[in-house]
């Protein structure tokens, strides 16, 4: 690595080719917009590169990618939601009153519920429901305890159940 700490041009190209697809795909899923995803991919990759040389393996690099891309995209979503009209409530499916798992398997539904969720819960919810990570993996990625992960998921579930019960099923 040169003195500036920036990897050589060839190394950047190799790493961008290797991890770029995962970042791009993730940004597309979260932002639902190709152009925004392209811009976000560059931003996220630049941030990932600042850490990636210390990653012992691809799994550790992916943990950074998840964390950084989630934060970046959530910021974009938050900025966007300040201007955009909220999704019509009746576009969301009805919950069964017990568990959110069936609805949350649909990532579009999951993201719409996430957008209605307090910011402190969003990152945890995305990693668990959208990415399908285990609670322990979410805790490790975010540097929080598993207990905190469980508490945040419970709060999200309670909020979402109330919301779904209040708004009803699609007509």
């Amino acid at each position: 690595m040169p003195p500036s700490g920036v990897p050589s041009t060839g190394r950047v190209s190799d790493l961008y080719r290797k991890f770029g697809p995962a970042i791009y795909s993730r940004c597309r899923r979260l932002l639902k917009d190709d152009a925004l995803a392209e811009d976000a991919t560059q931003e996220v990759f630049v941030r990932v590169m600042r850490h990636i040389e210390a990653a012992p393996d691809d799994s550790a690099a992916l943990a950074w990618i998840y964390r950084i891309s989630t934060n970046y995209c959530l910021n974009q979503i938050r900025d966007r939601s300040r201007q955009a009209e909220p999704t019509a409530p009746d576009e969301l499916p009805e919950g069964d009153g017990e568990t959110l798992e069936p609805q949350m398997l649909d990532r579009d539904v999951a993201m719409r519920l996430v957008e209605r969720t307090p910011e402190k819960l969003r990152e945890t919810v995305i990693l668990y429901y959208v990415d399908g990570l285990e609670q322990e993996q979410v805790a490790r990625t975010l540097g929080i305890s598993r207990r905190t992960v469980i508490n945040r998921l419970q709060e999200f579930q309670e909020r979402s159940r109330k919301f779904l019960a209040r708004e009803g099923s699609p007509s």
Binding site: P21, D58, L62, A63, Y66, E101, V130, G132, L133, Q137
Partner: peptide, 15 residues
């Protein structure tokens, strides 16, 4: 995972 699906991490690592 515990929910019987592949996580994003597993799918990414597979790729």
């Amino acid at each position: 995972n515990a929910r019987g699906h592949l996580s994003s991490e597993t799918i990414d690592l597979l790729l």
